[in-house]
């Protein structure tokens, strides 16, 4: 269970409060208006942003003072998820430790992770030789291999086209989101939430609330969310 215990995050004059608990297992969507603090929330959980007050706990363990690399948390951003100068296999292998030359058994594990995301035999390529979707898959392979139970997706697939994005979401739902894991997914698109997330956290007006049942929330949105959902394409 991920607990955000009276968490208060501040970033450049902006303040976000969160007091909620999320059971492990499956995917939780994080939605809300632009500039509402979705990425700030994820930065607080990942450890990129020190909280002003409150605690972050996973499975009862306090993460608040830990640096990002020491947390049981993997993050995927919209871009910059792979080091461009390393091979795909080296990038994925970083999940096992900060080394570029891996022992034979670790190399097998890297190859296994690549096979699971459909990138068999591409380990020797550099990220620039992969398509956008394949780069996303390679980053997912690293997340899988790291075995860290909390996975944060900060609009990780927003740059992909709709079909490719759905494919990546299904990959996340099928491979990453197991019963022991918790996937938190920031998205602009309520369709992403409906597709793979049964639960949704709403971030609006300086506060993160939830989790709500995704279908219920979208069927009867509170005013702040309703305005956001309506605004972009129906005016």
């Amino acid at each position: 269970m991920l607990e955000l215990d009276r968490l208060a995050l501040a970033q450049g004059g902006f303040r976000l409060e969160a007091d909620l608990a999320l059971e492990a297992g499956g995917t939780v969507a994080v939605i809300g208006p632009s500039g509402g603090g979705k990425s700030t929330l994820l930065a607080g959980i990942a450890g990129f942003l020190a909280p002003q007050a409150g605690r972050v706990r996973w499975a009862g363990r306090d993460l608040t003072g830990l640096v990002p690399g020491a947390r049981p948390v993997s993050v995927l951003f919209q871009d910059g998820n792979l080091f461009p100068h390393l091979t795909v296999a080296q990038n994925v292998g970083l999940a096992l430790g900060p080394r570029l030359r891996l022992p034979a058994e670790d190399r097998d594990r890297v190859e296994g992770a690549l096979a699971r995301v459909g990138l068999s035999g591409r380990g020797g390529d550099r990220p620039a030789q992969l398509s956008g979707g394949q780069q996303g898959r390679a980053a997912l392979a690293r997340v899988l291999l790291s075995g860290r139970p909390v996975v944060l997706l900060d609009e990780a697939f927003a740059a992909l086209g709709p079909a490719l994005k759905d494919e990546m979401l299904d990959l996340v739902a099928g491979l990453v989101a197991g019963p022991e894991r918790l996937v938190l997914m920031v998205s602009h698109d309520p369709g992403d939430a409906t597709r793979i997330a049964a639960r949704t956290v709403l971030v609006a007006e300086g506060r993160a609330t939830g989790p709500f049942d995704t279908a219920d929330l979208l069927a009867d949105p509170p005013p702040a969310l309703a305005a956001y959902l309506r605004a972009p394409d129906r005016s």
Partner: peptide, 21 residues
């Protein structure tokens, strides 16, 4: 941030992330 989340610090960060760039 990627290097941070992978726990790349000190000399290893220099070798893996910074010097190549």
């Amino acid at each position: 941030r990627l290097a941070d989340s992978l726990g790349l610090t000190g000399w290893r960060r220099l070798r893996i992330l910074l010097l190549p760039g």
